[in-house]
Amino acid sequence: MDFVKFFARRLGRLLLTVFIISTLVFFVVRVIPGDPALIIAGMDASPEDVQAIRVKLGTDKPLLSQYLVWLSSIARFDFGTTLISGEPVIKLIMERFPLTLTLALLGISIGIFVAVPLGVMSAVKRWSLWDYFGLVFSQLGMAIPSFWLGMLLLILFAVKIRILPLFGADTPAHFILPAVSLGFARAAIILRMARASMIEELSKEYIITARAKGLTERMVKYKHALKNGLLPVITVTGIQFGYMLGGAIIVEQVFSMPGLGRLFLFGIYQRDFTLIQGGVIFVAIIFSLVNFLADILYSIVNPKIRVE
């Protein structure tokens, strides 16, 4: 019962977020100087042509009715057609999304499988060699920009040693380097969180109870502390994953991968309002959705959150 209520509350919050973002995007795009109709029509167009385009775009109508039309189309996942090519925005996004999703999944997997064990070990064996290694690893991961790491990896593995392909996204091998360069930075953040959270849990009172029960240290740490210690890690991982699903503009650029990031970058270069607008909404929806899922997962691991 608690769970159903919690689920409904979080779902409501998700819808509210998407609604607020849609509204913000709508008004921001309208406030920014520059009439899309003028841009499409070009410098030399006659006022009649411009007006005809306005009618086609619907920008001749009052703001409020434009807003309502906008909301109803968002609800139907209809983000309009691009100004430049006239293709539906959602089609372009969906063409690019699988690549971005793959990259994000690979990146977050690297983040989780490297960072969680390392972070937990760092906390359990605090100030040991493990811990110093973990700290150095996370410092580097946060300090080194992903694209720079990407370029170094390219130089090493695609130019000097030549065991991995240089550009593109044609084979699985193409994904290795971008995933590593994205995953490294995520791993750094997740590691920090895992370490800090485990250290905190290990100092809680229920750890004394667990020891007083005669449990082995292994059970005390990897059962009692870990289940609580992983909770903030779930949240952070969800947020990181959400970020990556919005596309990794610079890393995609470095590796010439046709993902969402490059699509949106292209839209910005071309001043393609509907593409930019659709992109922002899409990223916002995906981001909220991932956080929603992370919250649900969190509540499964820690049912206490459901009533708070």
Partner: peptide, 15 residues
């Protein structure tokens, strides 16, 4: 065996 002062802190919230 031992019983502690504040059960809400000494019981593991996740189990």
């Amino acid at each position: 065996a031992m019983v502690f002062q504040e059960p809400s802190k000494y019981l593991n919230p996740a189990f």
